[in-house]
Design a protein around this nucleic acid. Structure first.
Lengths: 346, 346
DNA sequence: TCCCCGTGTGGGAACGATGTCACAGTCCTG
DNA sequence: CAGGACTGTGACATCGTTCCCACACGGGGA
C-alpha cells in the first residue's frame, strides 16, 4: 500500500434561501413559492429567483424541509449481505425504483447480525425515513419500525405477515418444482441443503421439498436434510461429509445460491461427475450457474424485480397508510440445464 | 404474481424531546444534556430522563439535530452498478466501515448514467451529507461536490487526482504482471479486452499491458486491443468476432470481470479449449473464476477493502478538512490458476 | 363611490434539537 | 461571614424551510 500527498483547497458557507431572496430582491416566502411551484409567483419574479438560485448554486436543505414538513423523501433499505449477489441485485432493483419515484435510498448492510439490524433500524427512525424495505432476520425490526409509525415492506422473507406488507417469491412452488424435476428423472435419494426450515422462506422451501417427495411416494430421510450455516465454507464442509458417505444421495437440491456454491465446490473436490454421479438443482439462479460446466439447473427468481416491487409497494403504502396490507408473490421458474439427469444405474 | 389482502393498523404522533421533558419533569435543555452527555445533569435526573425516553420510545430527530449543528453523520456512496459484484462488494466494505464509524450510508446506484449521477450528487448535497465516496464516471461529480464544500473520495477510478482524495488499486502493476505472465509462457499474440484506454483505471491497465509487451520485445498489434462496451453481451460479441477470425490471439487479458465473463462465454460457445487453444487471464477476481473448469487466473484486488479504505479516508478527511489530499494505492496480486499455459504449437 | 375578489408579496410562527446565558443554590476557603 | 467556585437548571435564540395569514394593488360590479 502506497500513499502520495498533495496540497488541498478550502471552502465557504453554503447559500440559503435567504441569500437567494436577497440576490433576487424578494422575500424568502417568494423564493420558496417560486422554487417549489406551490402558491403564486409572477413569472418575471419566478425567473429572477431561478436565475439567482442557479447562480448561487443553491440547493434546498432537505433537513430543514423535512423538519418543517414532517415527512421526508427517503426510504431505508435493510439487506442482509451485499456480498451475496442475491441481495446486491435486490438492492439494485430497489435503488432504481426509489430513484424513479423521487426517493433517496438509505442502505444498510446488516451482515446477518441482529445488533446491526436494530442499530440500523434506529438510525432510520432518527432519519425520519418515509418507509423501510427490509429482508428481515426476525420480527423485531418490523415491529419496532411499525411502532414508530414507519411503513415497512418485508421482502424475500416475511415475519410480520398480516400486519405489514410483504413481497416474496413462490418459494413453495419453486422448491416443489425443482424437487419434482428430480423425482421425475427417477431419483429417490434426494438431499436438501437449506439454511433453516422453521421460518418463512426456509420453511416454505422445505415444505415444497416435502410435498414433491410425498407426491412421488418417497419417504423422507432426515439425514438427507442438511441445515447448513449461512456461508459457502460451511455448506462445502457439510457437503463433503455427506457426499463422501457410503450411500450418498443421487441428487441434491440446494435451497439458495450460497449453499449451491458450497455443494458445487465439494462435488468438484471429490471428483464426482455431474450429472453422471449426482444431479444438482439450486434455488436462485446466479451468473456462475450458467458459466460452469456442466451448467446448473436452477429455480430463477426475478431478484431485481423483487427489490423494485418492494419499493413500489412501499411507496403505495406511504400514499395510503390505512389500506389493507398486502403480500405480493412473484412467480419463479425452473431453468433446466445440464446438471440434472436420471440417477446412475446401480 | 398473486396478491393477498389483510386489514391494517394505524399510528400516532412521534414523541419529541418536549414529551420526554414533561414525562421526566425537567426542561428540554436538561433532557438534551442528559441524553447527549454534554453539559451538567445530576445522576438521578439523568436516570429519570433516560427512563422516560426509553418508555416513550424517544429517538432524537436527526433532521432537527443536523439542522442545528450544521453537520450530519451520514455519508453518501455513489457506485456505478450494484449488479456488478465488484461494486456490490465495494459497497459492502464501505457499509461496514461507515457503520463502525457511526455514519449512516446513503447509497445510490448511478447505473453508468451521467444524469443519474448528477441527480444523486444533488440529492446528497441537499441531504447535507458529511462526505461522499464515489466511483466517478467523469470529473463532474467531484467538482460539483467539492464546490459545495463536501469532502469527496474517489475510489477505483480517479478523475480529480490532485484536488480530492483517491483510493485505487495498483492497476498498472497488476495489468503488467498479468500480461507478463502470458509473455513468459511464450505468448506473442496477446489480446486486451478493455472498456476504455484514455482515463484513470482503463488507461493504467492499458499502460501496464503495453509495458509488459515492450519488456517482452513484442510489437503492439492494434487490432488485438478491443475497446468493448460495458456489458457482458457486448464483450461476448466482440470476443466471438475476434476469436472466430483467421489468426486469433493465443491469449486474452480481460481488464475487468464483466469483460472476462463475456470472453469466457464466447470461448465456450466456440468450443475452444482453455488453456489448450487459448489462455485467459482477468483483472478482478470474482467467485465464478474459481468455480468454472478450468479455473481462471486473475489479478485479485481487495474490493471489500477498497470500499472500507475509502470510507476510512473520507472520515479522516472530514475530521481534517485542510490536510493535504492523498491517493492510497492498494496492492493487487496475480492468482495463477488453470486458464494459462504456453501457446499451442503451430 | 364602495366593496369584493383575484393576484402577488412579505412577515412571522412554526418544526425539533442544541447550546449559550443567566440564575439559583451549595459548598468551600480565606 | 463574605465572596468565589462549582453544580444544576430553565429561558431563549438559532438552524433553513414552509406555509398561514395579512396586506397591497387594481379592476369590475353594484
Amino acid at each position: 500500500m502506497t500513499v502520495e500527498r498533495r496540497p488541498s483547497p478550502s471552502r465557504s458557507r453554503r447559500p440559503t434561501i435567504k441569500d437567494v431572496a436577497e440576490a433576487a430582491g424578494v422575500s424568502r416566502s417568494t423564493v420558496s413559492r417560486a422554487l417549489t411551484g406551490r402558491g403564486y409567483a409572477a413569472s418575471d419574479v419566478r425567473e429572477r429567483v431561478l436565475r439567482a438560485a442557479a447562480e448561487l448554486g443553491y440547493v434546498p436543505d432537505v433537513m430543514a424541509r423535512t423538519l418543517k414538513q414532517q415527512v421526508s423523501r427517503s426510504v431505508g433499505v435493510l439487506v442482509s449481505d451485499l456480498r451475496n449477489p442475491f441481495y446486491a441485485e435486490l438492492a439494485a432493483g430497489a435503488s432504481r425504483e426509489a430513484r424513479e419515484r423521487g426517493y433517496t435510498m438509505v442502505l444498510a448492510d446488516t451482515s446477518l447480525s441482529a445488533e446491526a439490524e436494530s442499530e440500523a433500524a434506529e438510525a432510520l427512525v432518527a432519519l425520519r425515513v418515509a418507509g423501510v424495505v427490509v429482508t428481515p432476520n426476525s420480527s423485531a425490526v418490523s415491529t419496532y419500525l411499525s411502532a414508530h409509525g414507519i411503513p415497512v415492506v418485508e421482502v424475500d422473507r416475511q415475519f410480520a405477515a398480516g400486519s405489514t406488507d410483504g413481497v416474496v417469491v413462490g418459494n413453495r412452488v419453486g422448491a416443489r418444482t425443482a424437487t419434482s424435476h428430480l423425482v421425475e428423472l427417477g431419483h429417490r435419494r434426494i438431499a436438501l441443503f437449506i439454511d433453516e426450515t422453521d421460518w418463512t422462506t426456509g420453511y416454505e422451501r422445505y415444505q415444497g421439498y416435502l410435498e414433491a417427495l410425498a407426491a412421488g411416494g418417497i419417504k423422507v430421510e432426515p439425514e438427507l436434510v442438511v441445515s447448513s450455516g449461512w456461508d459457502v465454507a460451511d455448506s462445502r464442509r457439510r457437503a463433503l461429509d455427506m457426499l463422501r458417505g457410503p450411500d450418498r444421495p443421487t441428487a441434491v437440491f440446494a435451497a439458495n445460491n450460497v449453499l449451491a456454491e458450497g455443494v458445487w465446490r465439494a462435488i468438484g473436490e471429490l471428483g464426482l461427475r455431474v450429472p453422471g454421479d449426482i444431479s444438482l438443482v439450486a434455488f436462485d439462479d446466479t451468473p456462475w450457474m450458467s458459466m460452469v460446466s456442466p451448467t446448473v439447473s436452477a429455480v430463477s427468481q426475478n431478484t431485481y424485480g423483487l427489490g423494485a416491487t418492494a419499493v413500489r409497494r412501499l411507496s403505495e403504502r406511504i400514499e395510503m397508510p390505512e389500506a389493507d396490507s398486502v403480500t405480493t408473490v412473484l412467480n419463479v421458474r425452473l431453468i433446466s440445464r445440464e446438471s440434472t439427469a436420471p440417477p446412475p444405474e446401480i
